[in-house]
Write a protein that binds this DNA or RNA. Structure first.
Lengths: 350, 350
DNA sequence: CTGAAAGCGCTTACAG
DNA sequence: CTGAAAGCGCTTACAG
């Protein structure tokens, strides 16, 4: 006997009508034990359909919502996966998320999303929020940093970024080198020989540049790479780099932009230079963002298969929950060429 | 005496090294009481700087992260605001979020983001996740539905949508009617008299259409409104509606698209029809999305001031936490014209 | 299945 | 400030 006396007393006081219903209220209304309600909430198979129905009805009647705080505190796991993004404007995470959820939904996991900038005022380091939440696992969908070390045994997987790696965590990404090769070979296959790459800083851009250079060299040509100001990879960087490229090398017949956003900028630079796409200039991007399928761009691009990256990331997390001492591994997902109308054979020399 | 015996016993057992540190561990290491640690965690002013520093050092040393579950369960409030989005691809929420956070950060509130589709497998209705979390308040940044009724006294504010309203909740939005008027008057002011509106279903689009029609009628003209197929408001809808408009009414010199995404489609339709922007056709959007500032569009548009909408929404929530019985109110935020190069005076008649 | 019990890691008064 | 205590609403064995 301890606090339970008080609990009983409280439950027998009908004065406080505004109180949130608890598992006790549900049990009483359904005429079952508190333990049984808990089993129903956990979808335990060892509950008869009749009792399950009775409990469910009581839940509906009371609009009962289980307290995640209490469940997390009492149980060990929260069955929540935290996903850390860098910026909500980088839409590749949308497919990543759906891949993660597709994989985890059948297991009853919940997904919590956070960006690095969110809640920075309350969490000293970006993963603190998830640690305080006691998530079951974390997907880091941004460039990992020193401050993302997780203390104990929370499984972590880095998705989409291969530069730095967090000790003890897995890595899943699309194969940027192979994707860049696909893009370059598409242009080469169309007959282009004067191909420029618009690139920038960041791990993915660098690996894509490597794939581009390898493919170009493989064709016996010499690669031409332009970077945005300050190694940026935004729209304006694509615009400026493309502008400079078309000025420096007017013979250029095709541009490979390290991402669709830079391609958007490149399309503007082409237009401003009086070059039609694809008649006067072929353009290929990377990411297969919503932008790429717009009528204005109809951009040939590389689909990084982010949904699959998410699914594999989720599987890594589950594997590490099973066996925390499992060796770290890096998984690569195959990207795919998506052909639209921004690429075509080069115009015949006049 | 009750479970505390066991707690003491556990704490005296040094065998389990992997255990997460608790407030007890911090207190012991810092040489203070557990209560004091709790006060430090809550930034209480009634703690001396010396002791605060000692506690902080112990926290750092142990990499202690307070359990949100325990804090939520023990305290009444979670100091977390839930934000419900419809789709991560509608980027207007990014500014909304920063407005909310700007307002709530000084008060130590945390923000939790969820989309309607996320976690649908585990939450029967979209707000259940937040209710289970026992959030302090909810911002509904999507069209509210019947299933979003919140049971008890969780304050709710609907942001950016004015069609339906949730009983007992406040509404904050940009003034779509006034914004549409601004856009239309901008075109009228440039000298356009043949102006078409691309619109669609949904509350904002409808109100924007009303503002457009009022302004057009105010100028003694008759309004022309085209809708996308199935009343859609996406890029392809803008494309198709603009295509049809330019076909049906070749004399059209200006298009007002109900949002930037439709404007993107309209720009493509204009290009495909051989119309240059702004020389042959002026184009104005709504939302001031990242797209609008791209070099390819340089789109004149209406900025809905979403950051301010977020700030006002946060204030509403705080006010309702203070006084739950406060009357519901609707707040409108003033939108603003952002002039770029997609609008110009109409070409002189030839 | 039930029922009584302990415990998760905090917060919140409260007496000193 | 401390220290002992109760309690938040669950989960988890465990005996019956």
């Amino acid at each position: 006997m301890c606090e339970h006396e008080a609990v009983q007393a409280r439950n027998e006081t009908p004065s406080d009508q505004q109180r949130r219903p608890t598992i006790y209220d549900v049990a009483r209304l359904a005429g079952v034990s508190k333990s049984l309600v808990s089993l129903v909430l956990q979808n335990s198979p060892r509950v008869s359909p009749e009792r399950r129905a009775a409990v469910q009805q009581a839940i509906d009647e009371l609009s009962y919502r289980p307290s995640r705080a209490a469940a997390a505190l009492a149980g060990s796991r929260t069955r929540t996966i935290g996903v850390l993004l860098d910026d909500y404007r980088n839409l590749w995470f949308v497919d990543l998320l759906s891949g993660i959820e597709l994989e985890l939904a059948p297991l009853g996991y919940r997904v919590a999303v956070e960006s690095i900038t969110s809640n920075a005022h309350v969490d000293p380091s970006p993963l603190d929020g998830f640690e305080s939440l006691r998530v079951s696992g974390i997907v880091v969908a941004t460039e990992p940093t020193e401050s993302m070390r997780v203390n104990r045994d929370t499984p972590v997987v880095v998705a989409g970024h291969r530069d730095l790696t967090l000790p003890g965590s897995d890595v899943v990404a699309n194969d940027d080198r192979s994707g860049a090769r696909l893009a370059t070979e598409h242009l080469l296959g169309l007959g282009h020989t004067e191909i420029g790459l618009l690139s920038g800083g960041g791990g993915s851009a660098r690996i894509r540049a490597e794939g581009f250079e390898a493919a170009i060299r493989g064709a016996g040509l010499s690669p031409l790479v332009l970077e945005g100001r300050d190694r940026g990879t935004g729209e304006i960087d694509g615009y400026q780099a493309a502008q400079q490229l078309l000025l420096d090398r007017p013979g250029t017949t095709a541009i490979f932009a390290a991402n669709d956003t830079m391609a958007l900028g490149a399309a503007a630079a082409a237009r401003d230079a009086g070059r039609r796409i694809p008649e006067d200039l072929s353009l290929i991007g990377y990411d297969n963002s919503p932008l790429a399928s717009s009528q204005l761009l109809r951009l040939t691009t590389i689909d990084p298969n982010s949904r699959q990256v998410g699914a594999v990331a989720a599987k890594s997390l589950l594997a590490r929950m099973q066996d925390p001492d499992r060796e770290s591994e890096e998984s690569l997902v195959d990207p795919q060429l998506v052909t639209r109308s921004s690429t075509a054979p080069p115009a015949p020399r006049t």
